[in-house]
């Protein structure tokens, strides 16, 4: 849900004067409904985690209605489970491959290439990339399944030109979901970088070009330093979004074959709902929440001056 945006734009010049101090009722009443909802449905479940993760709560059976405290058993089991480490490593690879490398770099490249191109090109190319982002995640999953399936588009195109077909979703499941997620998420990075680049003055580039700076030098010494903040916020945002991707992988590979593309969200889903171990699933949830919290805290530090 961290679909927040860039810190590229400067602070608005005219901020409203915020001199008033509201009376207690003046702020308590308007904020109460939001606070109540968040307490019940956001903070509540998170706190509930810290109870359930230490129980043997199950979906059905005796430990469903009457769970027992089991101490750290869930965590001990988790850290002894090879599948958990596999899921953790796959999550790291998925985030690094699809967000940090894929979406981030492709988004930056697209934004740079589109800068100072004809408006019609920007509209068309930008529109196509954004449409991949607007499509609901589950539909994106179907489309990529159809593209990469054994009898899918890619294989029929390959055989048409005489190349061997491949069982992409079976042999390269992680790469398949990474590519699908790059396709789906690049628009966000592109939009963030486009906004950031639009604030890099053209004359800086021209002056450097006159002084004989190469394109690479200009990128390194002018563009990148000026969009550093936007890049950091973008990286944090897409990392947080990608950490919790479930639907796309669920549709394309279901985490398989075996556990070869089972990232932490899919692992948690399987343990909690397929194997009925809610307590254990909650322990996995706590690990994911902790990772999310750490990244979120870094993100917050980056944005701190902007609040």
């Amino acid at each position: 849900m961290a679909a927040s945006a860039s810190a590229a734009s400067p602070r608005p010049a005219a901020r409203p004067a915020r001199g008033r101090r509201g009376s207690a009722l003046g702020w308590a009443i308007p904020m109460a409904p939001a606070a109540g909802l968040l307490a019940l449905f956001f903070v509540g479940p998170i706190l509930w985690c810290f109870w359930a993760a230490f129980t043997n709560l199950a979906l059905t059976g005796a430990s469903a209605s009457d769970p027992e405290m089991v101490g750290l058993a869930n965590f001990r089991e988790m850290f002894a489970d090879g599948d958990f480490y596999s899921a953790a490593m796959l999550t790291v690879a998925f985030v690094a491959g699809s967000a940090i490398i894929g979406q981030n770099c492709l988004g930056l490249i697209l934004a740079m290439l589109m800068r100072s191109r004809k408006a019609v090109v920007r509209t068309v190319v930008g529109g196509i990339v954004v449409s991949a982002w607007v499509v609901p995640e589950i539909v994106a999953g179907f489309m990529w399944y159809a593209f990469l399936a054994d009898e899918g588009t890619l294989n029929s195109a390959l055989t048409a030109v005489g190349l061997p077909a491949n069982e992409w979703l079976y042999e390269l499941p992680l790469l398949s979901v990474i590519i699908a997620n790059v396709w789906r998420g690049t628009a966000f990075s592109m939009l963030v970088y486009s906004a950031a680049l639009s604030e890099v003055p053209d004359d800086l580039h021209e002056a450097a070009a006159v002084d004989g700076a190469s394109a690479v030098q200009r990128l390194r010494h002018i563009t990148l330093p000026l969009i550093k903040r936007a890049a950091m916020t973008n990286l944090m945002t897409i990392t947080l979004q990608t950490l919790s991707v479930f639907t796309l992988i669920f549709v394309m590979t279901g985490g398989g074959p075996g556990i070869k593309s089972q990232t932490l969200p899919l692992y948690m889903y399987q343990e909690a709902f397929k194997f009925s171990q809610l307590g254990y699933g909650t322990a996995v949830a706590i690990v994911m929440l902790t990772i999310g919290a750490v990244f979120s805290a870094i993100y917050l530090r980056l944005l701190r001056n902007e609040v």
């Binding site: 950490l243 919790s244 949830a285």
Partner: peptide, 24 residues
Amino acid sequence: LYALLFSTGLPITAIMVPVYGMFV
């Protein structure tokens, strides 16, 4: 505001298991 911003980063996917448990 910090708390709100921090919450936007938390993975909602992760709390679906506890939410389900709570809903049950």
